[in-house]
Design a protein around this nucleic acid. Structure first.
Lengths: 328, 328
DNA sequence: CAAATGGATGATAGCGATAACATCATTTGA
DNA sequence: TCAAATGATGTTATCGCTATCATCCATTTG
């Protein structure tokens, strides 16, 4: 920086000003400094800058398995939003959402002096970890219950499940079976709650939900079981991957979708529209959740109050895996 | 740090030593310092540390669309490997792999003083950007051609395509059609080359490859076309998502898979085994690629020579979307 | 037993930037 | 016309840490 200053015939301070508050420098001086910067291809040292400003320009994201479509999309949304404000994003992927693993992940990020963290923790057991976040670190949570002492951005799982279930009932099905995600996932319990509430309100029989693990495999296994029961004409599956396995199981058992059984998924992964049959599902706008959570975090970092919780409505996408129940 | 030193009755320098080179401090002093650290819950300031050491402990990853299964898995592999060496990973997702976008992404990372970068750039047009990487920044490329001046880690696409194609021919098919990815993708051209080489070597007819865009949609469109041609009995589709669309198109046109047409995909996404029928495909170990690229990068950062290029063999996974050609 | 050796610890000087205040030149207004 | 206000730039101190060399003490050695 000293070199740049000398070359431009100014002091280091002026160089710093050109880089940070250009409007406070006379245009001609500014131009000279910028030329010098270019000629020497000078790059400010971020470590020195953060040392004195106390800000790093880096955000941390703690997320469960980032290879999954949901987390990956959320992360992408955060990153895109962050870029527009000149933040960089550092990710820590955890393989368990316990209090300890979250604490460790946050510590690693803090050690690198991130300016704030987004925690993608759609899991019951994470709540404990979230309640014990260091109070001096701006933090936002994605996809958790809203009784936390930090802002939360999430898709309204209950509403999504309500829409899926109502859709199936409106097609004339007597009741709706449900293959759920693991119950300690917030998303899974929200979907169960939504599904159950509709059946209750309508006075329908409420079958025991079948516990899946989000994988196509578990959807397949449960599908084999459901296929044997001729009473089953409508299934709400808690995500598209399990629904994929479900479709295969029904097919292999000789049951037509949607003629014999209607299936609704959740997520709207990109392939959902090209499964056979194209899958009716509930679309979650993960990218938007990412964007929102970044905004919430930015509010906290900059000391603005900001909304405490932000819910996004999911959208029912009707394709060809659902149809009116055949008479009889 | 001053406080910790005082509390432990030593100088700041000794505290620093305890944290960085514990073996150079007498065990009892060390214990006292560590106690003080704990009691004050002191956390060293990474900015100050990097300012003086010139290292940040952060790696950068530049990747094309991180919501895709491949990039997301690679990223995950890098991150896991990095964690074990106490590195953190910062990601920049670019929406185009041009020289400019790569340059900008690398600049943003450099601005944050990353210790090195991994560039996931399976795209022709990126090569130019890669040739102009700043020479003073340790860099490694994933999934590019191997004529670059930086180490490359990649899955051997040609071998994968060869295996898929040979598999189909061995089932008695006269020739194999191919739905490719965009030709300016390294992976796509590698798969085309492998497929073509087998057909040439065996003296089979070589149909014009059908250009897809990796999406299920494009697989579906091409599938509709191929379904009309009764000559088509075997298709090698360049990724699983397009293969998903292909399966639907064939089905809708009344052609049975695998009885009438055999289909092989590429990637082995987690759902592939639960499509209907379960998809035969070529598995790429993305996580391993991520790990390898991190190793290559670490070698460069630490000034070791290290292997220049690392190729990983993909694996053919035969499921139920391929079968012997029906006689006649 | 003095000198040499070596291990543990301390004092000092930056690393490269910015905050805060000081300075100087110019403009403004009565 | 001149004091006060304004705006551009410079000076100094400091952020929190580690490299380097100095110092001290306890051994070992001749």
């Amino acid at each position: 920086m000293e070199d740049v200053a000398e070359r431009a015939g100014v002091s280091a301070m002026t160089v710093s000003r050109v880089l940070n508050t250009p409007e406070k420098v006379r245009p001609d001086t500014r131009a000279r400094v910028l030329d010098a910067v270019r000629e020497l291809s000078y790059r400010p040292n971020s470590a020195a800058r953060s040392l004195v400003t106390g800000r790093s320009g880096v955000l941390g994201v703690v997320s469960f398995d980032t290879t999954l479509y949901g987390p990956a999309s959320t992360l992408h949304g955060i990153e895109q939003a962050a870029r527009s404000e000149d933040y960089l994003v550092t990710t820590v992927s955890v393989s368990a959402l316990s209090r300890r693993s979250i604490g460790e992940a946050v510590d690693r990020l803090r050690f690198q002096s991130v300016d704030g963290v987004v925690i993608v923790a759609p899991h019951e057991s994470a709540a404990d970890g979230l309640r014990h976040l260091p109070p001096d670190l701006p933090a936002v949570v994605v996809g958790a219950s809203d009784d936390l002492p930090v802002p939360v951005a999430a898709v309204d799982q209950v509403t999504g499940a309500v829409r899926a279930t109502k859709h199936l009932l409106s097609l004339g099905h007597r009741t709706v079976w449900h293959v759920s995600g693991p119950q300690d996932w917030i998303d899974a319990s929200g979907r169960i709650a939504g599904w159950r509430s509709v059946l209750e309100a309508e006075g329908r029989e409420i079958p025991e939900p079948l516990l899946g693990d989000w994988s196509a495999r578990s959807g397949f296994e449960h599908g084999k079981r459901l296929a044997r029961d001729p009473e089953v004409t409508a299934v709400f599956v808690a995500n598209d991957h399990m629904a994929t396995g479900m479709l295969r199981a029904l097919r292999e058992a000789g049951r037509q979708v949607p003629q014999d059984v209607s299936v609704v998924g959740f997520d709207d992964v990109p392939e959902a529209a090209y499964l056979w049959p194209p899958l009716s599902t509930v679309r979650q706008n993960f990218a938007e959740v990412g964007r929102l959570s970044f905004q919430l975090l930015l509010d906290r970092i900059d000391g603005r109050a900001g909304a405490p919780h932000r819910m996004i409505e999911p959208e029912l996408v009707v394709r060809e895996s659902t149809a009116a129940r055949l008479p009889g």
